[in-house]
Structure formats: C-alpha cells, structure tokens
Simulated scan of single mutants.
Amino acid sequence: MIPGATARPVLSGAGQAPCHHGEILQGVFLDDTGRRCAGLVTLPMAGPGSSAAFVRRPGAVPEALTVVPADRTKAARAAALAVAECARRTGQPPCGGELRLTGEIPVGLGMGSSSSDVIAAVRAVADSYGLQLDPATVAGLAVRAELASDPLMLSGRPVLFAQREGRVLEVLGPALPPLVVVGCALGGGAPVDTLSLPVADVADVDRSDVRAYERLRALLRRAVATGDAQLLGAVATASARRGQRALRHPEFDALTALARRAGAVGVQIAHSGAVAGVLFDPAAPGLRHRVRGCLHALDAHGIPATHTFTTGATTAPSPKESPHHGPAHRGVDRPAGPDTPRRPARLPAL
C-alpha cells in the first residue's frame, strides 16, 4: 500500500446455502395462538447447494442491480431487498451491484433451488456490508422475494416452518432419526411447474384435514424425540399420500408398494416437485440387500434413481464458525431457464 493511503472498503461478499430432498411433512397447522398456518418439515441433504458472489456499486442507483444467470429473478429481488436492509443498518444509501450465482441443484424437482439461490444472495449482500443477518431476518427477506421459502437459512435442526410467513412454528428436536434415503425422481424427472399448482387458502382447508395434519405433527415430534425411524417413515408416507391430491404422480402406488417389499420404513416426496425418497432404517438387518432390492425395483418400474445418501444427527455450528459466509465455492451454473423450467431437468448423481 502507498504510504499515507487509506485502504478501500471491501465492497464484495459471498454467501452459500444448502438444498434439501423435499418434504417429510407438509400441510396446514395451528400456531401457538390457534391460527392456521401452512407449514412444512424438509428432509435435509448434504451436498449441492447455491453459492453467490455480490459486488456493490456505490453511487449506482438501486435499480442498477444485475444478476448472472439473468433468469434468477427471485434471487435478484432478494439481493435488492437485502441491499436496502443492510444499507439501513449501516447508515449508507442503497446502491446497485452485480450478483453472480453458481450451483448444482436441479431446478423444478422440489429440492429448494430457488430458496437456496435467494438465501445465498441475501448472505452475499450482507457479507459485502460486513454483516451477518440473523436467520429470522434472512427468512423474512426470502419470503418477500419469493412469497414462500424453505427453511434453508436455519441450522439444520428439524423444524415445522411456516413457509409463507418465514417463521418457525415448532422446533421438533435436535436431529431427525438416522435414515438411509434412496433418492429417485417421479414423472421421468420432468420438473414440476410450481406456479401451476393450486394454492389452497388455509381458511378453506377442512377442519378434519387440519386435525389430521396436527396428528402427523405429534407423531413426527415423537419420532424425533425417540429416534424412531419407523414412525418417521409412516408420517412421511401419510404426508406424501395427502400430497397426491394435487401432484397425482402416476408412480406413487408403485413406489409405496416397492418400498414395502424392500423393507423400507416409508417414502417421502417433494410436495412441490418430482424428487422422492425411499426411507430405510440404517439399523435394520440386511440393509445392503434391502437397498439393492429397492434400486432393482425402481429400475424395473422405470423410476430413475438419483442418489443414495444418509441423514441423521448433525452438529450445529459454534458461534465462532461462519459456514455460510466467506469466499464462495466454485460451482457449475445451472442451465439457463425460468425459475421453474418447462424442459426436463437432467438428473445428476446428486
């Protein structure tokens, strides 16, 4: 540095966010006041996620904010909202900038690709201001950007999350029971146009349905408390079956039947996509044989398998750790297209 010169402020930031493997439970639930709320519990998945890099342009009007790839409109909205929030907190005028996104999450399959983009974008903007926004603030910005958000801004603990309001309805426990998940994609892996799915007003949901969702919530709470993979699988299957009222996957009956024959504890399906999983208890005898039988059965029914992975106890990051900030990992841009593309998504080994 030239003697007497002052260091230029850091105007760039990076952020990351994970994906998930669809939902374990989704429906309409009651909050602490008895008010109805749409809510969900996602199945966490380590691996691919979204990375974002943001460069601020002080002096540029806030509207001069660009995003690469250009079709990531939800992430662009999130970045603009995050700029306004961070500028307010730091006493600076809002400005434009450039947001770049990379990631390997297949879009349109219900794995939270848009939420991951949005949350990574918010974190990158905050990082460019030298801030780390708390999860509640990130959730609020994410919901404003995309109307509903998955709980990918949280630590990974199983929570019932009000996706349209960006708030936690219940922390179910420290971790889900360990599971082995044989991932697959229904409908040949064709993306689901989530914007075309009916969005029911929670006020119109029948009271008997709300009671059924609350029973599933109580059972899932017990499954988490006791580490009962069998009970968790039963909840996930019941929730997936209810989801078929809207999704109507033609392979659903075949999937549940082959899961029973393979000795799985149940199935889970993304309620806004085509990704699905056959769930196994890792402590079950003959697990390798069961998983191999499941893979053969999926192939026989023309249901493409994607990836087999495990999930279970996770350790929350310590306050000194900053796992979602710092230099963005290099990734691969997802194919250009709308937020929910119409063409079939290529299925990598996730």
Rank of each mutant, 00 (worst) to 15 (best):
V332M: 09
L295Q: 14
G188C: 07
A297L: 07
G13Y: 02
G91M: 10
A14V: 00
A284H: 04
P282E: 07
V28T: 07
V180K: 04
P62W: 03
P250H: 11
I269R: 08
G189Y: 04
L287I: 09
S50C: 06
H249T: 02
R144I: 01
P174I: 02
A297M: 08
G47P: 11
V199A: 10
A120Y: 04
V107E: 07
G286S: 09
A60C: 12
S116D: 02
R292L: 14
T306L: 13
R292K: 09
R77I: 03
V332L: 14
A212D: 10
H271T: 01
A300C: 08
D201N: 15
Y213G: 00
V143D: 02
V224I: 13
S114L: 05
Q230Y: 00
T33F: 12
L295E: 14
G108C: 08
T73W: 05
K74A: 07
L169S: 05
H329S: 14
V180Y: 04
C184I: 05
A52R: 06
A236C: 10
H21V: 05
V125G: 00
A238D: 13
T90R: 15
D333P: 10
V28F: 00
P178F: 05
L176D: 06
V332R: 15
D32E: 15
R36A: 03
F54T: 08
Q163V: 03
P178S: 11
A78D: 05
A78Y: 02
R241W: 13
V205Q: 00
L11E: 06
L169G: 03
V10L: 10
R57S: 12
V210H: 01
L255I: 06
G263N: 08
G273C: 12
A60K: 04
R215E: 13
A5C: 07
H325D: 07
L133P: 04
V181P: 06
M111S: 03
A238K: 05
F161E: 00
R36Y: 07
G91C: 12
Q26T: 04
Q230N: 08
P250K: 11
P348Y: 02
V332E: 14
P62I: 10
C19G: 15
M153A: 12
P135V: 08
L109F: 10
P158V: 02
A313D: 10
P335L: 12
E23I: 04
G166P: 06
G91S: 11
V61D: 15
G331R: 05
A316F: 05
V10A: 09
R157S: 13
A238C: 12
P323R: 09
D299V: 08
R215C: 09
V278I: 15
R89L: 15
P191I: 09
L172E: 00
P135E: 06
A136D: 13
P335K: 12
E251I: 01
P94Y: 09
F309G: 13
G156N: 06
R292S: 14
I303P: 02
P250R: 11
V171M: 02
T102L: 08
G15Y: 01
V83E: 12
P198L: 10
A17F: 06
R215I: 02
T66M: 01
G331C: 03
